[in-house]
Design a protein around this nucleic acid. Structure first.
Lengths: 347, 347
DNA sequence: TTTAGCACTCTTACTCCTCGAGTGCTAAAC
DNA sequence: GTTTAGCACTCGAGGAGTAAGAGTGCTAAA
C-alpha cells in the first residue's frame, strides 16, 4: 500500500520537526508549524494510519509520534529535500582541507576533522582499501646492525613503514640488494597476489649476491610481513565526545555501548566495507538504527561514501550521528568533502 | 596542628570505605566495618574535627562524610598501605607486554593497553621526550620524483618519518649525498641544538656535490622541519569509555568536559611535562582533583611516572581515574609496568 | 472524506508526608 | 581531659496523591 501525497507530507513534516526538537510530534504542533490545509483531526487520522503502517511510533499513548526506522528510511529514500551546501560552509570546508599534504594520511585526518566540526557528529575517514592497489616501491634501510626499516609504497599513495629485525651481520649493501630484487620482481603486482612464494621467487630471479638460503628466507619473510601489514586500514575517527551532548545519549549506558563499539576500529572498518559492498552502485550508503548490525548503534545512523584515488574507488569517509540527524545537510556535507578529496587525489 | 593516631585511622578508614562504595561514610557504618575500640560518638567528634581541619566534606548535613582533596592528599602521602601486586596480576601484565617490539611505539601501545585493562581507568603512554635525545641517523629516500621520505632516527630508539616535497629534477644520488652530509654533521647532536643554521653548516661542511645555493637550502629546510617534527610527542591513551561506567560521571556534562579536554593530546602531554618537572625527584607524580590544572578533571586523579631508556629518564606513562581511586593498587600497577618498560628498554 | 467535539489516557510536575540516616550538643561517666 | 549515652534536629530519598496539560481515538455530523 503506497502513501498518498498528504501522508507523505505528514511523514516528512514529522521527521523534520522531530529532528529539530527531539520531542514527539503531535497533531496540533504539526498544524501550528506547517501549512496543512486540513484540520488536526484529519492529521490525527493520517498519523494513526502511518503508525499502523509502521512509519511512526508512539512512546506512550498520550504523547505525540516519532518516526520509526522505517519512517526515517522512507524519508531518506524519497521525501527529504536535498540541501545545497551554503557557500560559506563550502568555503570553510575547503579551507580546512587546503592543507599541503605529502601523505594521504594527513589529508584524511584533515577531512575527518572537517567533517566532525561541520556536522557536529562523529566523523570517519579510512585509508584506501589496498586490495585494489599494487606495490610500487620497497626499500629496506639499515638503522643499526640487526634492525632494518622496511618502507612500502603503494600505488594509492600510501606509504607504510615498519621496523624489523634481521641477523646482525648482514650489511646495508646486502639488504639493499635483496630489497631491490624484491622490488623489481613485485612492483606492479596487486597486493592480493603477493605471497611468501612470489616474494621468494622475485628475490631469487633478480638477485645478484649469493646468500645462504636460510638467511635469505629470513629476510624475505620479514619483508613479506611488512608488505602484508601495509594492508591494514587506518581509521581516523573524530568527534566522539560530541555525542554526549545529545539528549539520546544523556543516559550513560547508551553512550558507553556506543563508545565501546567505536573503540574497536576494526569492527567499524569491517562494517563500512560490508555496507559498501551491499550498496555498490550507490553514491552514498545510509544505514539507520536497527539496520546497523554493530552493537550499540541502534540509536544512530551511519552515512558513508567512497572517495577515489586516481579516478578509482579507493577508501571511505563517513559520519555517525543520531538517527535524529539532519540527513540532507549531512549528506551534502559528506558529498562536498568527498568531492574535495577526489579532486585532490586525482593526480 | 598534626593529626593524632586515631584521627589518621579514621581518615584512612573513610577514604577506604568511600573508595569502595562511592557513598558518604557515616560514623555508624565506620564502627560496623572497622575495629575501632571507641564508640560512634567519639568518631563523630573526630570526624567533625577532621572536617574543621579540611580533610573531610559533607555533601549535606544529614549525610556521611567524603574525603576532600586535602583528605585524599594526606591519605596518599602518609596513610595508605602500599599494595604488593599479586603474582597473578604481575603475570598478566608481563604477558601483555611480552610483544616483540621493533619500534618503541609498539611497546608503548601495549603498555598503555595493559594499564587500561588492569586498572579499569584511562591509561596514558607517551613517547620519549626528545629534548634529551640526539640524532643518530637521517635518511632521505626518493619515493618518486619530487617526493622524498625523510627518516629520522633518534637515540632514544624513536624512528619518525615524514614525506616532503622537493624540486622534481633532483636525483636520488643528490638527495642521498645531502642527507649523508647532514647526518655526518649532526649525528650526536642533541635535538635542542639543531637549528636551520646548524643543518646548513653541516651540509656545507660535508658535502661533495655542488648544488645551487637556493636549491640546496630548499632541501635543507625540508630536512630540518622533518627533524623538528620528530620532536612531537605521541600520546597513546586508552580506556576513556570506561569512565562512563563510574557513578561520578553518570552526569554526561561532566563526562563531556573530561572527554573534551582529553581529546587534545597536546594539553595532556603538556600537563604531564609540567608535573614531571615539579616533582622531579619523586618516583611517581600524583595530582588530585582541583590540584589538576586541566579543565574538566576536577573529579579525577592523575598518576604518572617516568620510564627510562638506556638508563636515562625518557618518557611518561600514567593513569587518569576518579579521585575515588584505589591509589595503592594503581600505583603498584603503574610501577610494575614502568619496571617492565625499563627492563625492556635497557639495551 | 473531513471536521468538531468530547471523553479518555498517560506523563509530568508539584506537594505533602514519612522514614531513616546521620549529625551536633549536652551532661554524665571514666 | 576524654569518652559515651542520649536526644533533638536536619535533610534527603522515596512514595502517595493530585492537578494540569498534551495528545489521542472515536463518534456523529457536515
Amino acid at each position: 500500500m503506497a502513501l498518498d501525497n498528504r501522508k507523505k507530507e505528514v511523514l516528512q513534516a514529522i521527521v523534520d520537526d522531530y529532528v529539530a526538537t527531539c520531542e514527539p510530534v503531535g497533531s496540533k504542533a504539526l498544524i501550528d508549524r506547517h501549512d496543512f490545509m486540513v484540520s488536526s483531526a484529519t492529521l490525527r487520522n493520517d498519523m494513526a494510519e502511518l503508525e499502523r503502517m509502521g512509519y511512526l511510533e508512539q512512546p506512550h499513548t498520550s504523547a505525540g509520534r516519532i518516526p520509526s526506522d522505517k519512517g526515517y528510511r522512507e524519508y531518506v529514500n524519497s521525501l527529504m529535500k536535498v540541501d545545497r551546501l551554503s557557500d560559506a560552509e563550502g568555503k570553510e570546508i575547503k579551507e580546512k582541507l587546503s592543507v599541503s599534504f605529502d601523505e594521504i594520511a594527513e589529508l584524511l585526518k584533515a577531512a575527518s576533522s572537517a567533517l566532525a566540526d561541520q556536522t557536529g557528529y562523529i566523523s570517519l575517514a579510512m585509508t584506501p582499501k589496498l586490495t585494489s592497489s599494487y606495490l610500487t616501491q620497497l626499500k629496506m634501510l639499515m638503522i643499526e646492525p640487526g634492525k632494518v626499516l622496511v618502507v612500502v609504497v603503494l600505488s594509492a599513495g600510501v606509504v607504510k613503514n615498519r621496523m624489523v629485525r634481521i641477523p646482525d651481520f648482514l650489511t646495508q649493501e646486502q639488504i639493499a640488494q635483496i630489497s631491490n630484487a624484491v622490488e623489481q620482481g613485485l612492483s606492479g603486482l596487486p597486493l592480493s597476489e603477493i605471497s611468501l612464494i612470489t616474494v621468494a621467487t622475485a628475490a631469487k630471479d633478480n638477485q645478484k649476491v649469493e646468500l645462504p638460503e636460510a638467511l635469505l628466507n629470513q629476510v624475505l619473510y620479514e619483508a613479506y610481513t611488512a608488505i602484508k601489514q601495509a594492508d591494514n586500514l587506518d581509521v581516523y575517527m573524530q568527534g566522539k565526545h560530541r555525542m554526549l551532548a545529545l539528549p539520546e545519549f544523556s543516559d550513560t549506558k547508551r553512550a558507553q555501548g556506543l563508545f565501546d563499539t567505536l573503540s574497536h576500529d576494526g569492527l567499524v572498518a569491517g562494517y563500512v566495507d560490508e555496507v559498501t559492498k551491499q550498496d555498490e552502485k550507490k553514491e552514498y550508503m545510509i544505514r539507520i538504527g536497527q539496520e546497523i548490525t554493530l552493537e550499540g548503534l541502534d540509536d544512530c545512523s551511519f552515512i558513508t561514501t567512497t572517495y577515489n584515488v586516481g579516478g578509482k574507488v579507493a577508501g571511505n569517509i563517513g559520519v555517525i550521528g543520531p538517527k535524529r540527524m539532519e540527513y540532507s545537510k549531512v549528506i551534502s556535507q559528506i558529498n562536498f568533502v568527498r568531492m574535495m578529496l577526489d579532486e585532490k587525489l586525482k593526480q
